[in-house]
Design a protein around this nucleic acid. Structure first.
Lengths: 196, 196, 196, 196
DNA sequence: GATGAATGAGACTTCATTCAT
DNA sequence: AATGAATGAAGTCTCATTCAT
């Protein structure tokens, strides 16, 4: 028996769940649907998840890990903060487009469960990474120092994600993607760039 | 008087729904719970709402109407834009605190239904009101003119609501309410105030 | 709609339950079996009983009511206590034979539920009736007065039922029914008849 | 040593079963509960017992063995029958108090299985022991000879156990333990003692 | 003999919705 | 319009049992 057998079943269930719930919604997806797609028995589900709701934090975790990984990867070679920020915004728009269904499911899933608090936990490494970028930029004199970096990191991440969600999920039709990304960037830049 | 009776039942059901769903969540609340609290018969529900999901847009509408009304009321006597903005931020924090359960239910409810699009519809008058305020401020030279007012109105409303939600719902513990409001305000101000 | 509609469904379920559970046992009987036999919908069961276990006290009540009624009826014309006792014993043997399956289900059902205490409640009118007979017999000098009538009533009822159950359910093969009844009667008579 | 290991597992399972089933009832106890408490693997259960129901006769056997053993031990030095009987009654009350949960489970377990008949088999050595005591007492002229010893042995054992169960399990509140035991003893004595 | 992950049948129960009154 | 008993489909979850290691 390979050491990864356990993970195989767990992952099969998790991936099946993400696909089906993204498509049909949490409420309309039955555990029976999930196990059928995952190719495991009904009871096997309960060896890995206590209930249908217990899937949601796992899915959320998965989503944030992917987002963080991709964001880091795309931005790692940027020469200065404003370039970093522009690349970050672009990548968040990409990810939001690709994963919009998962994003919606994760929002609703956590809200349904009254477990919105765990957002902060899941986002923690993400916020910390962004905070570090802010600190470095402040150190370099690229952005002003008079802001609360912790709060600002959270705020920017949220603002960018929100703009992207409004564009791809809310279907804000008044503006193109380029314009939308441009407005976000300019708004942030104006607020953070040091006076010339 | 007959018309009043009808409205009474409708409102009794809507209010009961808001209270119970806020507390127990949409999924765990049955129509039986709602009608029991509303004091009407099981079948009566279907005279006013097609299904359980049909409640959600009504609840969302209700929430946004209250928010818009209160925001207008509180800000109506503000002398200039920065004062208006500060009052607006404060009031959104108030409302988020008071209605956090309803906010969560409305998020999850609309997501469940894959009807996130209707957010834009419901928010429309709210965004328009804020847009008008922005336009007036631009006209007065209180804020810079180089921003897309439509997009910026939406962005600010979202940003403020998000900050408030992060504070009251996400339970961000790193900061006091005053600091949080202050950061939002400063961030927006820096980005929009004309260079002296 | 007749006033007895409610009782009709309730009784249909109760009678169906008694028949099927007597035959197949509590554990092997599903609610689905019961409602099928009763001719009502699955959900209707839950309008009248909270769960499968909630049937048991109702069935027990039913059994004891029948037993008390038949015992009273059969013994009502007996001239003296010893004749009464003989007739009572005979009738208990009759009933035990006829209802042995129900008796077994009620024993096990209440034990399963850890609700043995309710026996005392259900038996109360039965014990009281027998107690009155004992008091009358004492008053008439037909039996000795030096016994605790409350306790003795319970003891005799239990002893007679036990003997009958041992005969019909335990399948004690060493003795005929007549001999068994005779032994019970003689034993009780010896213990209660006044010295000549 | 291998044989010892086998017995260890068997006994671990049996004792765990008795404890858990006594507490939660047969129906609510799963084999998973039992093996967890016994500290063996799920599959190991099936090396020793064919099914969950197969536990019950083993538990019943265990209970009766203990009862017989204790009864013999306590009564072995009694000088005459009436003293023996008094000691026996007292000891049955003791045992009933100590093992009431097991008694309830054994009742329900056997009834569930429609295997009430096996009572007679399990009780056989117990009844025989009591029968021998009766015969000896008749031989000594301590009790009357006109009774069917086989039937009477069964009847007395049942009557005493019933009284004790009514007291400890049925929670008959009308009487103290001493009074209850006294009534049993007097009732039996009156019926069996030779006329002076 | 011992293990325990995996199975999958099927039981219980809930609940949105209907409809006769 | 209002009622609420009745429906029955469908979902969740449990659990005895198996079997490859």
């Amino acid at each position: 028996m390979s050491a990864t057998t356990v993970n195989d079943k767990y992952n099969a269930i998790l991936q099946a769940a993400i696909e089906i719930i993204s498509e049909k919604g949490l409420y309309s997806t039955s555990i029976s649907d999930i196990v059928k797609k995952a190719g495991v028995a009904q009871g096997t589900f309960y060896l890995y998840f206590r209930s249908k709701n217990a899937l949601i934090p796992a899915i959320a975790q998965n989503l944030i890990s992917i987002t963080l990984e991709k964001s880091k990867e795309k931005t790692k070679d940027r020469a200065n903060f404003m370039e970093f920020l522009q690349t970050f915004i672009d990548e968040i728009y990409n990810i939001t487009d690709e994963y919009k269904d998962v994003i919606v499911l994760v929002y609703s899933g956590l809200a349904i469960d009254h477990s919105m608090e765990i957002w902060e936990t899941i986002y923690k490494p993400y916020y910390e990474w962004f905070e570090d970028e802010l600190k470095r930029a402040i150190g370099n004199g690229e952005i002003i120092g008079e802001l609360n970096v912790g709060w600002t990191a959270k705020m920017i991440v949220n603002m960018v994600e929100n703009a992207a969600e409004r564009f791809f999920i809310g279907r804000d039709q008044d503006i193109t993607r380029e314009e939308s990304q441009h407005e976000v960037f300019q708004f942030l830049k104006r607020s953070m760039a040091p006076a010339k």
